[in-house]
Write a protein that binds this DNA or RNA. Structure first.
Length: 540
RNA sequence: GCGCCCGUAGCUCAGCGGAUCAGAGUAUUGGCCUCCGAAGCCAAGGGUCGUGGGUUCGAAUCCCGCCGGGCGCGCCA
């Protein structure tokens, strides 16, 4: 590839100009302005700092020594940047590569099949999924897809908190409803779940012949019911999990007890005020935390630690947990627990991607209620309002840690269409071109590309060439929004090209070359959209 | 009060291991359909990058203070 050739040539020049600085990192950037060429390096500036010499002078020396077949003579600009311009043939080579690699374009085997686990959503089975879960589902699934694209073997996992106080509350709430007690009535459980769905569950339970006095039966029924409902929503969202891990199984298998024993055996715990405490302050926490409450029960973070021990033991050397920022205090605790067990788990295990909460706006006001859940907007609501593709694109298009305002009106506006269609429309337009030309992408790909001499064509080729690096960076930083941004820019350049040039000209060779470029754009759009779980329609 | 995150164009947001980083979309205004999909394209206006210091030849980017916002700070999960 052209980039590595430039890098190697620059490296050779560097070895001649400054042998003792041969370790200076060489960074090749893609200038934003086309006038600055295809690649640019600031090595001369870095070098000037170390050698205390004039950067422009160094740049001149380096540039004169940097030669290669695929690029023109480099130019010096600004304080000492070395700019490289590719020869047309080298720049257009990416088109043929894309048509050849198809869905593999942008993928890499850099991950070498390493097993990685991405845990996300992990909603308690106490109600329908809310928008925050939606953001997690969109982010987590995209991060998983990105890691797969980099050659990792990814397991998508959902952790069910199906044990503990909140499940008891669920059971009491359903039982109360089954007995005809409504929220606010006498006998309604303290902090019970007030959503309409509780009534649905109670009705279904009774319809199935359930006994309203059988609290365990109610509990099992309600959890199964809500799990099934969440699965339906996730399916509608296009997210599939490989493993559902149940908190209750950690108790059943004795893994929770084992953690407590292990912590005690390592001398990391102590008794105080009738409770058992863990010295999490030894690992950077503000204060020590309770492990076993004075009533004998464990706090939630014990099964959490036990769960993460299983992740490690299941062979996941790398784990990414996607959670809301409201859980950020658990990071220190879980890591502290793992360290205190002294199992050889790295200090920064696992990785976390925290996302801020989503505010839903509609009609100029924040929406806080939904019919079904009562106190929050559900994933289902969003899908119903703007469609799955728009929800997934929107929720992934912002940095995870910035607050996100989901403007439903904006997403529906413009004759009931969504902004994501800008990207999808570019894809559909190429499909339309092929439908009309009767062309076949693989045949078209054989065409000579020499005719593609326009600035827009060069810019599109540059953009396409960039794609594999965008994917690699997005995967490394667990930042799917990079993909969304890239796709929008690629689509914008395509629309611009489409309007400026007549693709289906009469000249056979030129037409074939332009169609080849369009086919490469279409392929890249499709590859990118699939990473974030958005469809690439042929018509719309 | 303490900890983490955030403050960039009217609005929603990228950029943040310093330089070629003042950007995108949207909104506003003005152009472009006898012609491959106008759900599109082209152009213009619009920001002392919250604020005050510091480091540096060079700071939206790094450090400190302050202001403003979010989230945590349970023997809840």
């Amino acid at each position: 590839m052209a980039k590595s050739e430039i890098e190697a040539a620059l490296r050779r020049a560097l070895a001649q100009v400054a042998p003792d600085q041969a370790e200076t990192p060489i960074v090749l950037e893609r200038p934003k302005q086309a006038g600055h060429g295809d690649f640019s390096s600031n090595v001369a500036l870095q070098l000037a700092k170390n050698l205390k010499r004039n950067p422009r002078e160094l740049a001149q020396q380096l540039a004169a020594l940097t030669v290669g077949d695929s690029f023109e003579r480099p130019e010096i600009a600004g304080p000492g940047f070395i700019n490289f311009r590719l020869k047309a043939g080298a720049r257009l080579a990416v088109i043929r590569r894309i048509l050849d690699e198809k869905g593999r374009f942008g993928r890499s085997d850099a991950g070498k099949g390493q097993a990685v686990q991405v845990e996300f959503v992990s909603a308690n089975p106490t109600g329908p999924l809310h928008v925050g879960h939606g953001r997690q589902a969109a982010l987590g699934d995209a991060i998983a897809a990105l890691l797969e694209a980099q050659g990792h073997r990814v397991t998508r996992e959902f952790y069910y908190n199906d044990a503990g106080a909140q499940i008891d509350k669920l059971a009491w709430s359903v039982q109360a409803r089954a007995k005809g007690i409504r929220p606010g009535d006498a006998g309604w459980p303290a902090e019970g779940y007030a959503g309409e769905y509780i009534e649905d569950i109670a009705r279904e339970y009774k319809a199935g012949g359930g006994d309203t006095a059988d609290l365990d039966g109610i509990r099992r029924f309600a959890v199964d019911y809500l799990r099934a409902e969440q699965d339906v929503d996730l399916q509608a969202f296009g997210v599939k999990f490989d493993v559902y891990y149940l908190e209750s199984s950690l108790y059943a298998d004795g893994k929770v007890d084992a953690v407590v024993k292990g912590l005690a055996a390592n001398g990391k715990t102590y008794e105080k005020e009738g409770a058992l405490w863990l010295r999490t302050t030894d690992y950077g926490d503000d204060k020590d935390r309770v492990v076993r409450k004075s009533d004998g029960g464990y706090t939630y973070f014990v099964p959490d630690v036990a769960y993460h021990v299983t992740k490690w033991q299941r062979g996941f050397k790398r784990v990414v947990n996607v959670q809301g920022t409201d859980h950020h205090s658990t990071i220190t605790r879980v890591r502290a627990g793992l360290q205190a067990l002294d199992l050889g788990i790295p200090k920064d295990y696992p990785d976390y991607v925290l996302h801020s909460l989503v505010k839903v706006m509609r009609g100029g006001e924040e929406v806080k209620i939904s019919k079904r859940a009562g106190s929050y907007v559900t994933v289902r609501d969003l899908i119903d309002w703007v469609g799955r593709d728009a929800v997934r694109f929107f929720l992934v298009s912002r940095k995870a840690d910035s607050e996100f305002v989901f403007d439903v009106d904006l997403a529906r506006q413009k004759s009931d269409e969504n902004p994501v269609y800008y990207v999808q429309y570019a894809h559909a337009r190429v499909c339309s071109l092929f439908a009309q030309s009767g062309g076949d992408a693989s045949v078209v790909g054989q065409a000579a590309l020499d005719g593609l001499t326009g600035e827009r064509e060069a810019a599109l080729a540059r953009r396409l060439e960039e794609y594999p690096e965008v994917v690699a960076t997005a995967a490394r930083e667990a930042a799917p929004h990079d993909i969304a941004f890239y796709l929008r820019e690629l689509a914008a350049q395509f629309h611009s090209y489409y309007n400026a040039e007549r693709i289906l000209v009469d000249d056979g060779e030129l037409r074939a070359a332009r169609l080849a470029l369009c086919a490469a754009v279409r392929q890249t759009l499709a590859n990118g959209l699939s990473l974030i779980g958005v469809s690439a329609p042929e018509k719309m």
